[in-house]
Design a protein around this nucleic acid. Structure first.
Length: 523
DNA sequence: TTGATGATTGTTCGC
DNA sequence: GCGAACAATCATCAA
């Protein structure tokens, strides 16, 4: 489970390539630590080298965590000052480059990452990747490291069985002491193992914990009480799941615009799930939430702008819809007619995958990817890819900051190099939705950088192969990300991306959820 | 300010 | 087969 989760994180990372990593990792750490719960406890000294993100103090901060103690007080909250961190837009390349180099070239001759502490990169590592991606900078150098961390954690979590890590360079594995591994297990793994200790066998396809087992619930509750989960999801006192009977909504009624977070969730979850199909919704939610927290304000604004725009449309459509209802005396007939006269429901495509953000592959040349593949352990790749179709991972790259260009980048993934270049230009069908100017330019630059002919070579990302191969291998598969054909692509990450991918792959439209399909067809 | 609601996806279960 | 429920989390809105 944790292994999958870790891979999911790594996968999300691959899709969220960017340069915010360090900051995210820190944020993550801070968040969980401050929450009184650390998904993983830190052991030894963790130096946030490479996580500077322009924050020098982090570079030199050596945090010592008492891993032996279960007490939260034992955790020294790193002097993280997220609010003071420069805005993503202010994070210039130089900083990222520096970070990148610090990571890529800071490797010890033995391949270890002396200064790069995996301790700080637990689940939050995904954040790192995401943030990195959000800036559009290719901090690919961090990717392998992060992934290694994740996998190391995974290995720690599930050290008893051979895992994907076995086929990987034991770069970080060497960092992992038995102690840290066990701690990681207790810190990160326990929760999932308990909380998701579904009656289903470990190999069960269903990752969703069965809600039926009261014993399990008790265990989960007990666990959360003990662990002090930062986000006590299953808050005992939380609305006792009052039978919130979803009132039958008028299918013709305009669909409320999804929140920025929901959009982000869409973008991210697929990547996570793609890498870790067995990740439960809770796991994904937590990851996404953490990513969201770590998301740059500008990125959030980008989503919010989309939401606001959609909201405006929604209000207008709603007004029209209500007007139509009023004008039509019989509600049923009126509604039926309103569906024709007023198709506002179409305004917001039910579920439009926005995974147009360029995945890792977008930042790497095919040769790079190939190089990675060649260097990667087939076994590890196979394991990484998982027993399930991981395809969604590729088609779902979280895009936040790069969504303006993400579609084109995204669609090039499955294409040969020469075709990729041709796709760099924005599709003609590009959404008229105003793109955040503040993001556009930087992101364009970032994309260019990412697509520069001299992307970091495989030597810099020894594990990228997993991502790339995983993504590429997943690409042909059916995307479980629903999308509707009438999507206007006004959402951040590129619904266009999915559509274009669909076209370029020649694969059938991504499987939309039955609900959406029904809604769409109904309209 | 706070609580309720709805949104995200995928699985399960009941009708 | 379809739809509701559920999982964790956040945003939004109304009170």
């Amino acid at each position: 489970m944790q292994q999958h989760l870790a891979e999911a994180v790594a996968g999300a990372f691959s899709h969220c390539l960017g340069f915010y990593g360090m900051r995210l990792g820190l944020l993550f750490t801070r968040r969980w630590c401050t929450a009184g719960v650390s998904p993983k406890k830190f052991d030894g000294e963790s130096t946030y080298v490479g996580m500077s993100d322009g924050n020098p103090e982090l570079l030199s901060t050596s945090q010592t965590y008492n891993s032996q103690s279960e007490s939260n007080e034992d955790y020294e909250i790193p002097p993280i000052t997220p609010p003071n961190l420069p805005e993503p837009s202010l994070l210039h390349l130089g900083d990222h480059e520096a970070s990148y180099h610090s990571l890529c070239h800071g490797l010890a001759p033995n391949g270890l990452l002396p200064a790069y502490s995996y301790q700080a990169m637990d689940l939050p590592a995904i954040m790192v990747s995401n943030m990195l991606a959000q800036d559009g900078h290719l901090l690919s150098g961090q990717l392998p490291t992060i992934q290694e961390m994740v996998h190391s954690e995974v290995a720690a979590y599930d050290s008893g069985r051979p895992g994907p890590l076995l086929g990987r360079p034991a770069m970080l594995a060497s960092h992992m002491t038995a102690l840290s591994q066990s701690q990681l297990i207790s810190q990160m793994g326990i929760r999932s193992s308990i909380a998701h200790s579904s009656p289903s066998p470990p190999g069960s396809k269903s990752a969703t914990p069965s809600p039926s087992s009261s014993t399990q619930e008790e265990e989960s509750d007990a666990h959360f009480k003990i662990s002090g989960e930062k986000r006590p999801s299953t808050d005992p006192g939380k609305k006792a799941k009052n039978p919130k009977k979803k009132k039958k909504k008028d299918p013709n009624e305009p669909q409320k615009p999804v929140s920025a977070y929901a959009l982000f969730f869409r973008d991210t979850q697929a990547a996570i799930k793609g890498q870790n199909p067995s990740a439960t919704f809770g796991d994904v939610s937590k990851i996404v939430a953490s990513m969201w927290d770590s998301l740059g304000e500008e990125q959030k604004q980008a989503y919010k702008r989309k939401t606001e725009a959609a909201k405006k449309e929604y209000l207008k459509a709603l007004a029209a819809y209500r007007a139509s209802l009023v004008s039509k005396s019989p509600p049923d007939q009126g509604e039926a007619k309103s569906a024709q006269v007023n198709p506002p429901a179409k305004m917001l495509p039910p579920k439009q995958p926005m995974y147009a953000m360029p995945g890792l592959a977008s930042f790497l040349t095919p040769s790079d990817l190939q190089a990675f593949r060649s260097g990667a352990s087939p076994a590890s790749l196979a394991r990484t890819l998982g027993s399930k179709a991981l395809l969604p991972g590729l088609s779902t790259s979280p895009p936040p900051p790069s969504f303006p260009l993400s579609p084109s980048l995204h669609q090039q993934l499955p294409l040969p190099p020469h075709a990729q270049g041709a796709l760099l230009s924005p599709p003609l069908s590009m959404s008229p939705a105003p793109q955040p100017p503040v993001l556009a330019a930087p992101m364009a630059l970032q994309v260019q950088l990412a697509m520069s002919p001299s992307p970091p070579g495989p030597q810099d990302f020894p594990h990228i192969s997993d991502f790339s191969s995983g993504s590429s291998s997943r690409s042909p598969g059916p995307s479980n990300t629903p999308s509707s054909g009438d999507w206007d692509g006004s959402f951040p990450s590129g619904e266009r991306g999915i559509s274009t991918c669909r076209l370029c792959r020649g694969s059938p439209p991504p499987a939309a959820s039955p609900k959406n399909l029904q809604e769409t067809s109904a309209r």
